[in-house]
Design a protein around this nucleic acid. Sequence first.
DNA 1: ACACTGCCCTGCGAGC
DNA 2: TGCTCGCAGGGCAGTG
Length: 285
Amino acid sequence: MPELPEVETVVRSLRGHIIGEEIRALRLTDFPGVLGGESLEQVNARVAGRTIRGIRRRAKYVVIELDDDTALVVHLRMTGRLSAVASGAPVQRHERLAIAFQSDRELRFSDQRKFGRVVHLHPVDLDALEQRLGREPLSPEFTPEWLLERLARRPGKIKAVLLDQGLIGGLGNIYVDEALYLAGIHPERSANSLAPAEVAAVYQAVREVLQAAVQNRGTTFSSFEDPEGNPGRYGARLLVYGRGGKDACPRCGTPLARTVVAGRGTSFCPACQPPPEAASGRGEA
DNA sequence: ACACTGCCCTGCGAGC
DNA sequence: TGCTCGCAGGGCAGTG
């Protein structure tokens, strides 16, 4: 399920293939909803003839910038894939949309579960998107001081808060579980109960996990592949994600626990990540 | 303003 | 063997 490192991998991989391409037309296969409610005709009327000026990542979004300051914004959600192919390439499994260029190339969007979207946004919409997304966790603006100050205002569970895209943009279930494990913080601790040293540990863990995952081209858990069809290599490094109720803690050997937090399957070590009650001496209300 | 729940969707694996 | 069922989860709407 693509999070920041997977989306970053997709963007880097596509960058050399689609910049400078002039859009001829978008083409649907079987799922008009992929365009987010707009009709194919509406979108085509606006993007035909536009040239791709750049491609970047913002949180978990792929932003394909066009030469009129609008953009095609892609969210892969769980199973979305993008790939640049020759225009004659066979329709892919679960293909939802093709963006045909004036050259003999196309950008294809496939998505098994139909959760992903490709929408065309005007500058005002892009600004609105930017406004409701939080800080990039690998940017210089993401600092321990800032995180401490923000977490102090949030009584919710730390895992839910870290998943809040309006606070930090790009973290998802895999890397939150990994980061909280590395930081030794139970996922159900109240965010505002974390001592400064604990916030610093969370900060450090988030940065380390994301940087290592980007370097390894992401995690392939169920189906992620980059646009060249390569799996991510970070999956082999996962310490707790998906292991609760199955494996032992790689650090202390205690069986990993599994629960649901913020509606997400959650794995953690009950020994290395003491529950809120046990952590009360360190600040839990 | 914040927290929480349910919904969308399909493939896969467990269980019978 | 073949079926049913539960699970996976990001973002958003609706509710409290």
